[in-house]
Design a protein around this nucleic acid. Sequence first.
DNA 1: AAGAGGCCCTGATAGC
DNA 2: TGCTATCAGGGCCTCT
Length: 287
Amino acid sequence: MPELPEVEIVKQSLEKKVKYKVINNILIKNPNLRFKVEKNFKKILKNKKILKISRRSKYLVIELQNNIYLIIHLGMTGTLHYIEKKKNNLYSNLSFYKSAILPKKHNHIEIIFSNFKIIYNDPRRFGFFRILNNKKKFINYFKKIGPEPFDKLFCYNYLKKKLYNKDVCIKNTLINQNIVSGIGNIYANEILFYAKVNPFKKSKNISKNEINKIIKFSKYVLDKAIKKGGSSIRNFKDIKGITGTYQDEFVVYDKKGKICKSKNCHEKIIKLNISNRSTYMCKYCQK
DNA sequence: AAGAGGCCCTGATAGC
DNA sequence: TGCTATCAGGGCCTCT
């Protein structure tokens, strides 16, 4: 769920709060995330100053003193919450997301600073925290990950080469992080609709024109999503703490039975499965 | 070696 | 109303 735009929004808000701050303490309430939080997690991070916050693909990267890199992946349901300490020493509810309340359950990790803390919540525990303790490990970690969609490396010649002889359907290629990073199921559906490409079409059969449109609309859709603060999917009644309005702009995702938004098209959007993942398309516009 | 499919996990929702 | 089944999907793993 948190795809590139959502992680970017978290990165931007996190940066404002924690850059140049020193981690006072860490509280691990439940280490059993996607990967178990390592035993000396607290020891390594305690009293370290945060030097830089960045995003690579769907990962948050927190660079600390002594070449320590903390990698955070939000998985499907991970959220970070900024909780401010009040004068009476109680923490107030204040999140990275508008109108957010700290959930009662599944608060697994607390990163404590002098007058606030960052709380990691993740009901499904698909997310993870990983420490890389030198620059080489950090570089290696992202070695296989493909270019960022906004990067000039993500261009016609690059994608053409990657699609060559590739037998998998284009949608699976688009969400393959080793080819281009940061695109997940939701945005892949949206991008392919704008590019007017059938998600089932084999990668090797994608035309020059289609490659160019896929690149163009990858940049377009993700950029627009970031500008809208990301997507807050469906009507989450109890998972608050998510802002962003790009879900209002969805043209196909979760639009089964709705009329296609292309000019002069009256087809209904259909929902199909590709590799057990929901795939929404207009079978008239995406051939 | 590329590609397909399984698995991890909880909560919302559908159907009986 | 309470039960069970299904779905949501990112990344890693195994099997063919």
